[in-house]
Simulated scan of single mutants.
Amino acid sequence: MYPKPEDGPATGFPMSAGTARTGGGPGAYYQAAPPTAAFAMQAGQAPLAAWSTGLCDCFDDCGNCCITCLCPCITFGQVAEIIDRGSTSCGASGALYALIMLLTGCQCVYSCFYRAKMRAHYGLQESPCADCCIHWCCEPCALCQEYRELKKRGFDMNLGWHANMERQGRTPATMPPLMHPGMTR
């Protein structure tokens, strides 16, 4: 219960099965260890899934690869609209991406957040490396991989979020619920 002298001073950070101690003296700290599949199963979480295609599998969809190389804002806009569940349009997301690209050249910082959001939503692994590294080193390949992943999950990327929901027979999550007439005076 109480720390032993060889453990060093108490830091106030609780330890769990997913933490590992680094160092051993007064400057020791605790760092969360990456979850393994066994740890995820014990915690009641599903293990992270692999991407359906590799980062450099652009030959699977040559049309999208060409569009992404010539005008990445189009692919980014299509991906962002699906990930945002229609709260932002393809045109608005693509225009913001293009504006950031023209003004700063750091559009990869903006697009890597969407990759992280997509991974969290679908439970995908952060592979082959961190999201920002992938977008920094190979932005077109990352956008193509995200596009292919959504396509393999049943989205027609040319339709957008709302038309995909109608096609699947579901009402979009962004639409307000229908109100039934209640009691009137």
Rank of each mutant, 00 (worst) to 15 (best):
A38S: 12
A40S: 14
M41C: 08
Q42T: 05
A43G: 03
A43E: 04
A43R: 11
A43S: 13
Q45A: 11
A46D: 05
P47N: 02
P47G: 00
L48G: 03
A49N: 08
W51R: 00
S52P: 01
S52R: 05
T53Y: 06
T53S: 08
G54M: 02
D57Y: 02
C58K: 06
C58W: 12
D61L: 05
D61E: 10
D61R: 13
C62W: 15
C62T: 09
N64Y: 14
N64H: 14
C65Y: 11
I67H: 10
I67N: 05
C69F: 09
C69N: 15
C69W: 11
L70W: 05
P72Y: 02
C73Y: 03
C73R: 07
C73D: 06
T75Y: 00
F76G: 10
G77E: 06
Q78S: 05
Q78Y: 01
Q78I: 03
V79Q: 01
V79G: 03
A80W: 06
A80L: 04
E81M: 01
E81L: 02
I82N: 00
I83L: 09
D84S: 15
D84G: 12
D84R: 09
R85C: 12
G86H: 08
S87K: 15
T88V: 11
G91V: 14
A92R: 07
A92H: 13
A92I: 14
S93F: 09
G94C: 12
A95V: 10
A95P: 13
L96C: 09
Y97A: 01
Y97H: 14
I100V: 15
M101N: 12
M101W: 15
L102Q: 12
T104P: 10
G105Y: 02
G105V: 09
C106A: 15
Q107H: 15
Q107P: 09
C108R: 09
V109M: 13
Y110A: 11
S111H: 13
S111A: 15
F113R: 13
F113W: 10
R115H: 03
A116P: 00
M118C: 05
A120H: 07
A120E: 10
G123P: 01
L124W: 02
Q125G: 07
Q125L: 15
E126N: 12
S127F: 06
P128F: 05
C129W: 13
A130C: 14
D131W: 03
D131Y: 04
D131N: 12
D131M: 03
C133D: 09
C133S: 07
C133W: 06
I134E: 01
I134D: 03
W136H: 14
W136P: 03
C137Q: 14
C138W: 04
C138N: 07
C138F: 11
E139C: 12
C141S: 12
C144S: 11
C144Y: 03
C144A: 11
Q145W: 00
E146G: 02
E146A: 13
E146V: 07
Y147L: 06
Y147R: 11
Y147S: 00
